[in-house]
Design a protein around this nucleic acid. Structure first.
Lengths: 211, 211
DNA sequence: AATTTAAGTGTACACGTGTACGCTATTGTT
DNA sequence: AACAATAGCGTACACGTGTACACTTAAATT
Protein backbone atom coordinates (compact mmCIF):
# COMPACT_ATOMS: atom_id res chain seq x y z
CA UNK A 1 0.00 0.00 0.00
CA UNK A 2 1.73 3.11 -1.27
CA UNK A 3 -0.89 5.28 0.32
CA UNK A 4 -1.53 7.78 -2.45
CA UNK A 5 -5.15 7.45 -1.46
CA UNK A 6 -4.69 7.94 2.28
CA UNK A 7 -2.43 10.83 1.42
CA UNK A 8 -5.16 12.59 -0.54
CA UNK A 9 -7.64 11.93 2.22
CA UNK A 10 -5.37 13.51 4.80
CA UNK A 11 -4.99 16.48 2.51
CA UNK A 12 -8.68 17.21 2.20
CA UNK A 13 -9.08 16.53 5.90
CA UNK A 14 -6.69 19.36 6.55
CA UNK A 15 -8.70 21.42 4.08
CA UNK A 16 -11.73 20.97 6.29
CA UNK A 17 -9.83 21.75 9.48
CA UNK A 18 -8.32 24.89 8.00
CA UNK A 19 -11.64 25.93 6.53
CA UNK A 20 -13.22 25.77 9.99
CA UNK A 21 -10.36 27.68 11.58
CA UNK A 22 -10.45 30.36 8.91
CA UNK A 23 -14.10 31.05 9.51
CA UNK A 24 -13.59 31.77 13.19
CA UNK A 25 -13.61 35.41 14.22
CA UNK A 26 -14.96 37.71 16.87
CA UNK A 27 -18.37 37.52 15.20
CA UNK A 28 -18.27 33.85 14.38
CA UNK A 29 -17.95 31.19 17.04
CA UNK A 30 -17.32 27.55 16.22
CA UNK A 31 -20.72 26.59 17.52
CA UNK A 32 -22.34 28.93 15.01
CA UNK A 33 -20.51 27.31 12.10
CA UNK A 34 -22.52 24.96 9.93
CA UNK A 35 -21.36 21.79 8.30
CA UNK A 36 -22.30 23.19 4.91
CA UNK A 37 -20.37 26.40 5.39
CA UNK A 38 -17.23 24.53 6.35
CA UNK A 39 -17.56 22.13 3.44
CA UNK A 40 -18.13 25.02 1.04
CA UNK A 41 -15.09 26.92 2.33
CA UNK A 42 -13.03 23.78 1.86
CA UNK A 43 -14.32 23.47 -1.71
CA UNK A 44 -16.18 20.24 -1.04
CA UNK A 45 -19.74 19.06 -1.47
CA UNK A 46 -21.60 19.10 1.84
CA UNK A 47 -21.96 15.34 1.92
CA UNK A 48 -18.23 14.81 1.45
CA UNK A 49 -17.79 16.14 4.96
CA UNK A 50 -18.94 12.78 6.31
CA UNK A 51 -16.01 10.97 4.76
CA UNK A 52 -13.82 12.67 7.38
CA UNK A 53 -15.98 13.54 10.37
CA UNK A 54 -19.28 12.09 11.47
CA UNK A 55 -20.29 15.37 12.98
CA UNK A 56 -19.37 19.00 13.50
CA UNK A 57 -18.73 17.97 17.09
CA UNK A 58 -16.05 15.55 15.96
CA UNK A 59 -14.40 18.28 13.92
CA UNK A 60 -14.55 20.47 17.01
CA UNK A 61 -12.75 17.90 19.12
CA UNK A 62 -10.08 17.61 16.45
CA UNK A 63 -9.63 21.38 16.51
CA UNK A 64 -9.24 21.34 20.28
CA UNK A 65 -6.56 18.67 19.92
CA UNK A 66 -4.85 20.92 17.42
CA UNK A 67 -5.04 23.76 19.91
CA UNK A 68 -3.55 21.52 22.56
CA UNK A 69 -0.58 20.84 20.31
CA UNK A 70 -0.09 24.56 19.81
CA UNK A 71 -0.20 25.03 23.55
CA UNK A 72 2.60 22.51 24.03
CA UNK A 73 4.60 24.11 21.30
CA UNK A 74 4.20 27.31 23.30
CA UNK A 75 5.53 25.67 26.43
CA UNK A 76 8.55 24.24 24.65
CA UNK A 77 9.39 27.54 23.04
CA UNK A 78 9.03 29.42 26.31
CA UNK A 79 11.25 26.92 28.10
CA UNK A 80 13.96 27.29 25.51
CA UNK A 81 13.93 31.05 25.83
CA UNK A 82 13.88 30.91 29.59
CA UNK A 83 16.93 28.67 29.60
CA UNK A 84 18.84 31.50 27.95
CA UNK A 85 18.11 33.73 30.92
CA UNK A 86 15.82 36.66 31.62
CA UNK A 87 12.58 37.25 33.47
CA UNK A 88 10.56 34.06 33.41
CA UNK A 89 7.25 35.90 33.58
CA UNK A 90 8.11 38.41 30.89
CA UNK A 91 9.38 35.77 28.49
CA UNK A 92 6.32 33.58 29.06
CA UNK A 93 3.84 36.36 28.44
CA UNK A 94 5.65 37.62 25.38
CA UNK A 95 5.90 34.14 23.92
CA UNK A 96 2.21 33.64 24.56
CA UNK A 97 1.28 36.90 22.89
CA UNK A 98 3.42 36.09 19.87
CA UNK A 99 1.69 32.77 19.44
CA UNK A 100 -1.69 34.43 19.68
CA UNK A 101 -0.74 36.81 16.92
CA UNK A 102 0.22 33.99 14.57
CA UNK A 103 -2.31 31.37 15.65
CA UNK A 104 -5.22 33.58 16.65
CA UNK A 105 -8.03 31.37 15.48
CA UNK A 106 -6.66 28.27 17.12
CA UNK A 107 -6.77 30.08 20.42
CA UNK A 108 -10.28 31.34 20.03
CA UNK A 109 -11.39 27.78 20.58
CA UNK A 110 -9.72 27.57 23.97
CA UNK A 111 -10.34 31.13 25.10
CA UNK A 112 -13.91 31.71 23.95
CA UNK A 113 -16.52 28.99 23.35
CA UNK A 114 -17.21 28.45 27.04
CA UNK A 115 -20.81 27.65 26.22
CA UNK A 116 -23.05 26.78 23.33
CA UNK A 117 -20.99 23.71 22.53
CA UNK A 118 -21.33 20.01 23.29
CA UNK A 119 -20.36 18.64 26.69
CA UNK A 120 -17.55 16.65 25.08
CA UNK A 121 -16.17 19.77 23.45
CA UNK A 122 -16.17 21.74 26.67
CA UNK A 123 -14.60 18.84 28.53
CA UNK A 124 -11.81 18.70 25.97
CA UNK A 125 -11.13 22.41 26.31
CA UNK A 126 -11.07 22.16 30.08
CA UNK A 127 -8.70 19.21 29.88
CA UNK A 128 -6.21 21.11 27.72
CA UNK A 129 -6.23 24.10 30.02
CA UNK A 130 -5.89 21.91 33.07
CA UNK A 131 -2.90 20.15 31.55
CA UNK A 132 -1.31 23.52 30.88
CA UNK A 133 -2.00 24.63 34.44
CA UNK A 134 -0.50 21.48 35.86
CA UNK A 135 2.68 21.92 33.88
CA UNK A 136 3.04 25.39 35.31
CA UNK A 137 2.23 24.09 38.78
CA UNK A 138 5.02 21.52 38.53
CA UNK A 139 7.46 24.17 37.44
CA UNK A 140 6.55 26.44 40.35
CA UNK A 141 6.85 23.64 42.83
CA UNK A 142 10.31 22.64 41.78
CA UNK A 143 11.96 25.74 40.39
CA UNK A 144 10.52 28.12 42.96
CA UNK A 145 10.28 25.53 45.72
CA UNK A 146 6.68 26.37 46.60
CA UNK A 147 4.18 24.60 48.80
CA UNK A 148 2.07 22.24 46.65
CA UNK A 149 -1.27 23.86 47.30
CA UNK A 150 0.11 27.36 46.95
CA UNK A 151 1.77 26.43 43.68
CA UNK A 152 -1.54 25.21 42.31
CA UNK A 153 -3.36 28.36 43.28
CA UNK A 154 -0.68 30.50 41.71
CA UNK A 155 -0.65 28.44 38.53
CA UNK A 156 -4.43 28.55 38.31
CA UNK A 157 -4.57 32.31 38.81
CA UNK A 158 -1.74 32.93 36.38
CA UNK A 159 -3.34 30.85 33.63
CA UNK A 160 -6.64 32.63 34.15
CA UNK A 161 -4.98 36.04 33.87
CA UNK A 162 -2.89 35.16 30.85
CA UNK A 163 -5.70 33.45 28.96
CA UNK A 164 -8.04 36.33 29.65
CA UNK A 165 -5.43 38.78 28.39
CA UNK A 166 -4.94 36.57 25.37
CA UNK A 167 -8.64 36.62 24.69
CA UNK A 168 -8.63 40.41 24.84
CA UNK A 169 -5.57 40.59 22.61
CA UNK A 170 -7.39 38.61 19.94
CA UNK A 171 -9.61 41.57 19.16
CA UNK A 172 -6.91 44.22 19.16
CA UNK A 173 -5.44 45.40 15.88
CA UNK A 174 -3.34 48.19 17.33
CA UNK A 175 0.12 46.92 18.12
CA UNK A 176 0.94 49.42 20.86
CA UNK A 177 -2.31 48.50 22.58
CA UNK A 178 -1.17 44.90 22.68
CA UNK A 179 2.20 45.91 24.06
CA UNK A 180 0.47 47.83 26.82
CA UNK A 181 -1.67 44.80 27.59
CA UNK A 182 1.43 42.60 27.76
CA UNK A 183 3.06 44.98 30.18
CA UNK A 184 0.01 45.03 32.41
CA UNK A 185 -0.29 41.26 32.33
CA UNK A 186 3.33 40.82 33.32
CA UNK A 187 2.84 43.10 36.29
CA UNK A 188 -0.29 41.25 37.35
CA UNK A 189 1.52 37.94 37.23
CA UNK A 190 4.21 39.45 39.44
CA UNK A 191 1.57 40.45 41.95
CA UNK A 192 0.42 36.88 42.10
CA UNK A 193 3.93 35.45 42.27
CA UNK A 194 4.80 37.76 45.12
CA UNK A 195 1.72 36.94 47.13
CA UNK A 196 2.17 33.21 46.55
CA UNK A 197 5.83 33.26 47.57
CA UNK A 198 4.97 34.95 50.82
CA UNK A 199 2.21 32.55 51.73
CA UNK A 200 4.44 29.61 50.89
CA UNK A 201 7.16 30.96 53.13
CA UNK A 202 4.78 31.54 56.00
CA UNK A 203 3.51 27.99 55.71
CA UNK A 204 7.00 26.56 55.81
CA UNK A 205 7.86 28.50 58.92
CA UNK A 206 4.74 27.38 60.73
CA UNK A 207 5.51 23.80 59.81
CA UNK A 208 9.01 24.07 61.26
CA UNK A 209 7.87 25.58 64.53
CA UNK A 210 5.31 22.82 64.91
CA UNK A 211 8.00 20.20 64.95
CA UNK B 1 -54.36 57.15 30.44
CA UNK B 2 -54.74 54.41 33.01
CA UNK B 3 -52.12 52.32 31.23
CA UNK B 4 -53.83 48.96 31.45
CA UNK B 5 -52.54 48.42 27.97
CA UNK B 6 -48.94 49.49 28.58
CA UNK B 7 -49.07 47.41 31.71
CA UNK B 8 -49.98 44.29 29.77
CA UNK B 9 -47.28 45.03 27.25
CA UNK B 10 -44.65 45.31 29.94
CA UNK B 11 -45.86 42.04 31.36
CA UNK B 12 -45.40 40.05 28.17
CA UNK B 13 -42.14 41.86 27.58
CA UNK B 14 -40.92 40.39 30.83
CA UNK B 15 -42.27 37.04 29.65
CA UNK B 16 -39.94 37.24 26.67
CA UNK B 17 -36.96 38.32 28.76
CA UNK B 18 -37.50 35.54 31.27
CA UNK B 19 -38.09 33.02 28.52
CA UNK B 20 -34.71 33.88 27.03
CA UNK B 21 -32.96 33.71 30.39
CA UNK B 22 -34.57 30.37 31.23
CA UNK B 23 -33.27 28.80 28.06
CA UNK B 24 -29.68 29.66 28.84
CA UNK B 25 -27.53 26.83 30.12
CA UNK B 26 -24.10 25.30 29.70
CA UNK B 27 -25.26 23.76 26.43
CA UNK B 28 -27.23 26.72 25.21
CA UNK B 29 -25.68 30.11 24.61
CA UNK B 30 -27.74 33.20 23.90
CA UNK B 31 -26.36 33.39 20.40
CA UNK B 32 -27.71 29.92 19.69
CA UNK B 33 -31.21 30.92 20.78
CA UNK B 34 -33.74 31.50 18.03
CA UNK B 35 -36.47 34.09 17.98
CA UNK B 36 -39.04 31.36 17.56
CA UNK B 37 -37.79 29.35 20.50
CA UNK B 38 -37.94 32.35 22.79
CA UNK B 39 -41.41 33.29 21.61
CA UNK B 40 -42.62 29.73 22.07
CA UNK B 41 -41.20 29.51 25.60
CA UNK B 42 -42.96 32.77 26.40
CA UNK B 43 -46.22 31.34 25.05
CA UNK B 44 -46.39 33.79 22.16
CA UNK B 45 -46.71 33.51 18.43
CA UNK B 46 -43.34 34.07 16.72
CA UNK B 47 -44.46 37.27 15.07
CA UNK B 48 -45.60 38.78 18.36
CA UNK B 49 -41.94 39.00 19.29
CA UNK B 50 -41.62 42.05 17.05
CA UNK B 51 -44.10 44.03 19.14
CA UNK B 52 -41.37 44.20 21.80
CA UNK B 53 -38.00 43.80 20.13
CA UNK B 54 -37.00 44.40 16.55
CA UNK B 55 -34.37 41.73 16.79
CA UNK B 56 -32.81 39.04 18.92
CA UNK B 57 -29.89 41.45 19.19
CA UNK B 58 -32.10 44.02 20.84
CA UNK B 59 -33.33 41.44 23.32
CA UNK B 60 -29.70 40.58 23.99
CA UNK B 61 -28.83 44.18 24.80
CA UNK B 62 -31.78 44.34 27.16
CA UNK B 63 -30.53 41.23 28.91
CA UNK B 64 -27.08 42.73 29.31
CA UNK B 65 -28.64 45.82 30.86
CA UNK B 66 -30.47 43.52 33.22
CA UNK B 67 -27.18 41.86 34.08
CA UNK B 68 -25.64 45.26 34.72
CA UNK B 69 -28.37 46.02 37.23
CA UNK B 70 -27.69 42.74 39.00
CA UNK B 71 -24.02 43.62 39.11
CA UNK B 72 -24.78 46.92 40.84
CA UNK B 73 -27.07 45.21 43.25
CA UNK B 74 -24.10 42.97 44.03
CA UNK B 75 -21.88 45.96 44.72
CA UNK B 76 -24.43 47.58 47.01
CA UNK B 77 -24.96 44.40 48.96
CA UNK B 78 -21.24 43.79 49.33
CA UNK B 79 -20.67 47.33 50.52
CA UNK B 80 -23.35 46.99 53.16
CA UNK B 81 -21.83 43.80 54.46
CA UNK B 82 -18.34 45.21 54.40
CA UNK B 83 -19.48 48.19 56.47
CA UNK B 84 -20.34 45.75 59.22
CA UNK B 85 -16.74 44.62 59.37
CA UNK B 86 -14.83 41.53 58.30
CA UNK B 87 -12.47 40.59 55.49
CA UNK B 88 -13.28 42.70 52.45
CA UNK B 89 -12.09 40.07 50.02
CA UNK B 90 -13.89 37.21 51.69
CA UNK B 91 -17.18 39.09 51.89
CA UNK B 92 -16.95 40.21 48.29
CA UNK B 93 -16.29 36.74 46.94
CA UNK B 94 -18.99 35.15 49.05
CA UNK B 95 -21.52 37.77 48.02
CA UNK B 96 -20.59 37.24 44.41
CA UNK B 97 -20.96 33.48 44.67
CA UNK B 98 -24.32 33.82 46.36
CA UNK B 99 -25.58 36.01 43.55
CA UNK B 100 -24.36 33.53 40.97
CA UNK B 101 -26.28 30.79 42.68
CA UNK B 102 -29.54 32.74 42.55
CA UNK B 103 -29.04 34.59 39.27
CA UNK B 104 -27.02 32.06 37.36
CA UNK B 105 -28.42 32.65 33.93
CA UNK B 106 -28.10 36.40 34.13
CA UNK B 107 -24.41 35.95 34.71
CA UNK B 108 -23.89 33.55 31.87
CA UNK B 109 -24.39 36.50 29.58
CA UNK B 110 -21.52 38.42 31.10
CA UNK B 111 -19.22 35.50 31.80
CA UNK B 112 -19.60 33.41 28.65
CA UNK B 113 -20.72 34.75 25.25
CA UNK B 114 -17.36 36.29 24.45
CA UNK B 115 -17.89 35.52 20.79
CA UNK B 116 -20.57 34.54 18.35
CA UNK B 117 -22.60 37.60 19.17
CA UNK B 118 -23.07 41.00 17.55
CA UNK B 119 -20.48 43.72 18.02
CA UNK B 120 -23.01 45.81 19.93
CA UNK B 121 -23.68 42.96 22.31
CA UNK B 122 -20.01 42.37 23.04
CA UNK B 123 -19.45 46.08 23.49
CA UNK B 124 -22.28 46.22 26.02
CA UNK B 125 -20.84 43.31 27.99
CA UNK B 126 -17.39 44.88 27.99
CA UNK B 127 -18.87 48.18 29.16
CA UNK B 128 -20.60 46.57 32.13
CA UNK B 129 -17.47 44.74 33.20
CA UNK B 130 -15.38 47.86 32.79
CA UNK B 131 -17.76 49.84 34.94
CA UNK B 132 -17.51 47.18 37.61
CA UNK B 133 -13.73 47.23 37.39
CA UNK B 134 -13.63 51.00 37.68
CA UNK B 135 -15.76 50.95 40.81
CA UNK B 136 -13.34 48.53 42.38
CA UNK B 137 -10.41 50.63 41.19
CA UNK B 138 -11.84 53.70 42.90
CA UNK B 139 -12.34 51.79 46.11
CA UNK B 140 -8.76 50.52 46.09
CA UNK B 141 -7.38 53.95 45.40
CA UNK B 142 -9.16 55.61 48.29
CA UNK B 143 -9.69 52.94 50.91
CA UNK B 144 -6.32 51.29 50.42
CA UNK B 145 -4.54 54.44 49.29
CA UNK B 146 -2.97 52.83 46.26
CA UNK B 147 -1.14 54.34 43.33
CA UNK B 148 -3.65 54.95 40.49
CA UNK B 149 -2.05 52.68 37.95
CA UNK B 150 -1.42 49.93 40.47
CA UNK B 151 -5.01 50.14 41.65
CA UNK B 152 -6.24 49.65 38.11
CA UNK B 153 -4.05 46.63 37.54
CA UNK B 154 -5.18 45.07 40.77
CA UNK B 155 -8.85 45.77 40.04
CA UNK B 156 -8.51 44.35 36.56
CA UNK B 157 -6.78 41.19 37.75
CA UNK B 158 -9.23 40.72 40.60
CA UNK B 159 -12.26 41.04 38.33
CA UNK B 160 -10.75 38.59 35.87
CA UNK B 161 -10.12 36.05 38.61
CA UNK B 162 -13.53 36.44 40.24
CA UNK B 163 -15.48 36.35 36.99
CA UNK B 164 -13.58 33.31 35.83
CA UNK B 165 -14.30 31.56 39.11
CA UNK B 166 -17.92 32.59 38.77
CA UNK B 167 -18.04 31.10 35.31
CA UNK B 168 -16.65 27.84 36.67
CA UNK B 169 -19.09 27.89 39.57
CA UNK B 170 -22.00 28.09 37.14
CA UNK B 171 -21.45 24.49 36.09
CA UNK B 172 -20.96 23.05 39.57
CA UNK B 173 -23.84 21.36 41.33
CA UNK B 174 -21.84 20.10 44.28
CA UNK B 175 -21.99 22.62 47.08
CA UNK B 176 -18.72 21.66 48.76
CA UNK B 177 -16.98 22.00 45.42
CA UNK B 178 -18.22 25.58 45.21
CA UNK B 179 -17.05 26.29 48.75
CA UNK B 180 -13.59 25.00 47.83
CA UNK B 181 -13.58 27.23 44.76
CA UNK B 182 -14.55 30.24 46.87
CA UNK B 183 -11.73 29.54 49.28
CA UNK B 184 -9.23 29.29 46.47
CA UNK B 185 -10.49 32.46 44.84
CA UNK B 186 -10.19 34.38 48.09
CA UNK B 187 -6.60 33.26 48.46
CA UNK B 188 -5.79 34.23 44.89
CA UNK B 189 -7.23 37.70 45.42
CA UNK B 190 -5.03 38.03 48.49
CA UNK B 191 -1.99 37.17 46.41
CA UNK B 192 -2.87 39.98 44.06
CA UNK B 193 -3.66 42.44 46.85
CA UNK B 194 -0.36 41.70 48.52
CA UNK B 195 1.66 42.13 45.36
CA UNK B 196 -0.13 45.34 44.46
CA UNK B 197 0.31 46.86 47.89
CA UNK B 198 4.03 46.24 47.74
CA UNK B 199 4.48 47.77 44.32
CA UNK B 200 2.43 50.78 45.34
CA UNK B 201 4.62 51.27 48.39
CA UNK B 202 7.80 51.00 46.40
CA UNK B 203 6.54 53.59 43.94
CA UNK B 204 5.70 56.02 46.68
CA UNK B 205 9.14 55.70 48.22
CA UNK B 206 10.86 56.30 44.91
CA UNK B 207 8.73 59.37 44.35
CA UNK B 208 9.70 60.79 47.72
CA UNK B 209 13.42 60.25 47.22
CA UNK B 210 13.18 61.95 43.85
CA UNK B 211 11.97 65.17 45.45
C1' DA C 1 -6.92 -8.03 -15.98
C1' DA C 2 -10.89 -8.31 -13.10
C1' DT C 3 -12.86 -6.96 -8.94
C1' DT C 4 -13.49 -4.45 -4.70
C1' DT C 5 -13.07 -0.31 -1.93
C1' DA C 6 -13.90 4.30 -0.85
C1' DA C 7 -13.41 9.62 -1.65
C1' DG C 8 -16.17 12.90 -3.63
C1' DT C 9 -20.67 14.47 -6.25
C1' DG C 10 -25.59 15.66 -7.00
C1' DT C 11 -30.27 15.19 -5.91
C1' DA C 12 -33.82 15.13 -2.69
C1' DC C 13 -36.31 15.66 1.56
C1' DA C 14 -38.08 17.18 5.96
C1' DC C 15 -37.37 20.66 9.13
C1' DG C 16 -36.34 25.12 11.55
C1' DT C 17 -35.40 29.76 10.58
C1' DG C 18 -36.63 35.09 10.09
C1' DT C 19 -40.11 37.91 8.70
C1' DA C 20 -43.82 40.18 5.51
C1' DC C 21 -48.75 40.64 5.45
C1' DG C 22 -53.51 40.76 6.66
C1' DC C 23 -56.57 39.88 10.32
C1' DT C 24 -59.03 40.18 15.08
C1' DA C 25 -60.04 42.09 19.39
C1' DT C 26 -59.30 45.17 22.89
C1' DT C 27 -57.75 49.68 24.75
C1' DG C 28 -57.26 54.59 24.18
C1' DT C 29 -58.77 58.92 21.98
C1' DT C 30 -61.75 62.06 20.01
C1' DA D 1 -70.73 56.65 20.23
C1' DA D 2 -67.46 56.64 16.54
C1' DC D 3 -62.78 56.19 15.42
C1' DA D 4 -57.85 55.24 15.73
C1' DA D 5 -54.14 52.61 17.62
C1' DT D 6 -51.98 48.45 18.68
C1' DA D 7 -50.91 43.70 21.02
C1' DG D 8 -51.21 39.30 19.46
C1' DC D 9 -52.37 35.54 15.91
C1' DG D 10 -52.18 32.71 11.66
C1' DT D 11 -50.67 32.01 7.14
C1' DA D 12 -47.20 32.03 3.85
C1' DC D 13 -42.74 32.26 1.74
C1' DA D 14 -37.88 31.89 0.69
C1' DC D 15 -33.89 30.17 2.61
C1' DG D 16 -30.31 27.43 5.14
C1' DT D 17 -29.84 23.33 7.64
C1' DG D 18 -28.38 18.09 8.37
C1' DT D 19 -28.33 13.97 6.09
C1' DA D 20 -30.07 9.71 3.36
C1' DC D 21 -29.29 7.66 -1.05
C1' DA D 22 -27.69 6.40 -5.47
C1' DC D 23 -23.93 7.66 -8.56
C1' DT D 24 -19.05 8.11 -10.54
C1' DT D 25 -14.28 7.51 -10.74
C1' DA D 26 -9.85 6.40 -9.34
C1' DA D 27 -6.92 3.66 -6.23
C1' DA D 28 -6.13 -0.82 -3.99
C1' DT D 29 -6.55 -5.68 -3.95
C1' DT D 30 -7.08 -9.99 -5.88
Amino acid sequence: MSGIRAQQKEKTRRLLIDAALNQLSAERSFSSLSLREVAKEAGLAPTSFYRHFSDMDELGLTLVDEAGLTLRQLMRQARQRIAKGGSVIQISVETFMELIESNGNVFRLLLRERSGTSAAFRAAVIREIRYFTMELCDYLQHAKNLDTEVAYMQANAAVTIVFSAGSDALDMDDKSERAQLSKQTIQQLRFIARGAAELSDRRKISKKTNK
